[in-house]
């Protein structure tokens, strides 16, 4: 048995023990679905970052950085972190205020419409399944490469772990195991990236070496490597901007992100958490970026770029650090899988079954069957982690993001408008993704499914709302949402929360200075 397999098994046992301990304390539906709405800031920050950082960061994003898209990837990453600030202030607080168990339930309550709730449920479950599939394939690929065990068996083993944690301990267990896993992969990435750069001769030496690579011209230029994704720098930057919007939407409105807000102990926790989450995600992307770029010093022609950090763990880093990093990467995948699965179960029980009794049992049964279906899909289809992951993000941006914000900010939007917008965005994004693939053509970056999906959503929402009238129930539901609860009016809490939000401006300054010192100055030298 190799050392990596031992590390993975130990981590699996720890997660299972934590799942059992927490599961025994889960008594009510409130505990199971929303962790009793008592989660402190640490658990919200840990769980949101862990849900965001799936194997996609360590496999997908690392490959893009390694292949020469440093600048477009940093544009994407920094654009997306803003989604946490907007998501918390303009959507998450209201979600918690509505006291619902699922986001489709929120839409149904806000618009007094079962049709809107059903559509949101269907799109939500499709998004989750798409994401769960991507994560399962990522976990299977990673585990198989590092342990030598068959890919399908790896998927089965990891599935047993995350299905058990989720079914047994619900949202409460997911929040805690997510936070443990977040600590593990964050610590591992900080140490690993420092050692990768140090062993490569320091960051300045890395920059000097990689900028002279003949096979990756412009790897650190403002437009990235023009021989990789698009043949022009402008197009590469445009790609970063488009996917920046996609992932910003995911961070703002993605169900596996915004659902955490329903579990926070109060609205101040939601707002304050967003600052730490934004900083944490920026830092993790930056560390992944500099570590992956630095790997070009060791080998610039690695045949499978998506496994470059696995290669680093096994060949470059000291064994113990490699074991911790790989266990951390696996933890990132499992933490995302637990979140997706718990949301699928919650939606099946609360939005489809909708009974008053035995909802936890229904939720557990649906989690079990969905995980079996996704496992079969993951085993029978070739791994396409990044493609599937980006497709899931596109559905969120096109179908949900405009609806989430319109439901809070717009007085004129109606249930018909929301329904038409969601549907048009969803179908538009599917067609723009599937038809070009079927015809074997590639569309220009400005006709990306996200752009078309969001545009169709907004147009359909506008037309649908213009042709119908806002009902008194919809007016009342929105006004109720906009009233700040008495429990949130403590002047001291408000003062501190406002200070946190002002610190976002400081975060912008920190990001600019970091980019100047890490990127601009070294490449100008």
């Amino acid at each position: 048995m190799n050392i990596y397999l031992i590390g993975i098994f130990i981590s699996f046992i720890i997660y299972l023990i934590v799942g059992v301990v927490i599961g025994r304390k889960v008594k009510t539906a409130n505990d199971f679905y929303v962790a009793g709405r008592r989660a402190p800031m640490l658990l919200i920050v840990g769980s949101m970052i862990a849900s965001y950082v799936s194997t996609g960061l360590f496999l997908g994003d690392a490959a893009e950085f390694y292949n020469g898209l440093f600048s477009p990837m940093m544009i994407l990453s920094i654009m997306q972190v803003v989604g946490y600030i907007y998501g918390a202030i303009f959507f998450g607080r209201y979600l918690r205020r509505s006291e619902v168990y699922t986001i489709p339930e929120f839409f149904g309550k806000r618009f007094h419409s079962e049709a809107v709730r059903k559509l949101a449920t269907i799109t939500s479950i499709i998004m989750m399944i798409v994401y769960l599939l991507s994560v399962m394939q990522g976990i299977g690929t990673l585990m198989s490469v590092i342990t030598g065990i068959d890919y399908k068996l790896c998927i089965l083993l990891s599935l047993i772990v995350f299905v058990f944690i989720t079914m047994f301990s619900g949202a409460k267990g997911v929040l805690i195991t997510d936070t443990i896993m977040f600590s593990l992969f964050t610590g591992a990435l900080v140490i690993a990236s420092f050692l990768i750069i140090k062993n490569a001769g320091g960051w300045n030496h890395v920059v000097e070496t990689v900028t002279q690579l003949a096979d990756k011209p412009g790897i650190l230029d403002w437009g990235g490597n023009t021989e990789y994704l698009y043949p022009s720098k402008v197009m590469n930057v445009f790609w970063g901007l488009i996917y920046g919007v996609v992932w910003m939407s995911v961070c703002m409105a993605g169900p596996w992100q915004s659902s955490r807000y329903m579990m926070a102990k109060n609205e101040h926790t939601i707002i304050r958490s967003s600052l730490y989450i934004a900083f944490g995600v920026f830092l993790l992307e930056l560390l992944t970026g500099v570590a992956s770029v630095s790997m070009n010093v060791y080998t610039s022609t690695y045949a499978e770029p998506s496994k470059i950090l696995i290669y680093a763990s096994m060949e470059v880093l000291p064994t113990i650090v490699g074991v911790i990093l790989l266990t951390g990467v696996l933890a990132a995948g499992i933490s995302s899988a637990t979140t997706f699965l718990s949301l699928i179960g919650s939606s099946c029980a609360n939005d489809i079954y909708k009974g008053k009794r035995n909802t936890i049992t229904i939720s557990r049964i649906s989690m079990f069957f969905v995980s079996i279906i996704v496992m079969i899909l993951a085993m029978t289809n070739p791994p396409q982690i990044r493609v599937i992951l980006y497709f899931g993000g596109t559905i969120v941006a096109a179908s949900w993001m405009p609806a989430c914000f319109a439901s809070i900010l717009s007085k004129r939007v109606t249930k018909t408008g929301i329904f038409c917008g969601m549907l048009a965005g969803f179908i538009g994004c599917f067609i723009m993704k599937l038809v070009p693939d079927a015809l074997g053509i590639s569309l220009p970056v400005y006709l990306d499914p996200t752009v078309v999906g969001i545009a169709l959503n907004l147009i359909a929402m506008f037309i649908g709302s213009a042709l119908t009238k806002v009902t008194p129930e919809e007016v009342e539901a929105r006004q109720k949402l906009l009233v700040v609860p008495e429990s949130e009016k403590n002047p001291h809490d408000i003062k501190i929360t406002k200070r946190y939000v002002r610190c976002t401006v400081l975060l912008g300054l920190i990001i600019t200075l970091t980019m100047i010192f890490v990127w601009v100055i070294p490449i100008w030298r």
Partner: peptide, 30 residues
């Protein structure tokens, strides 16, 4: 160009803080 991108990204984040702050102030000071 690299400098412009770095500054723009910082401003993008700062803008979120300003808009968020204005929205919160409006709601809390009602």
């Amino acid at each position: 160009m690299e400098l412009i991108i770095s500054i723009s990204l910082g401003l993008w984040v700062a803008l979120a803080g300003i808009l968020g702050y204005l929205h919160l102030r409006k709601e809390y000071d009602k």
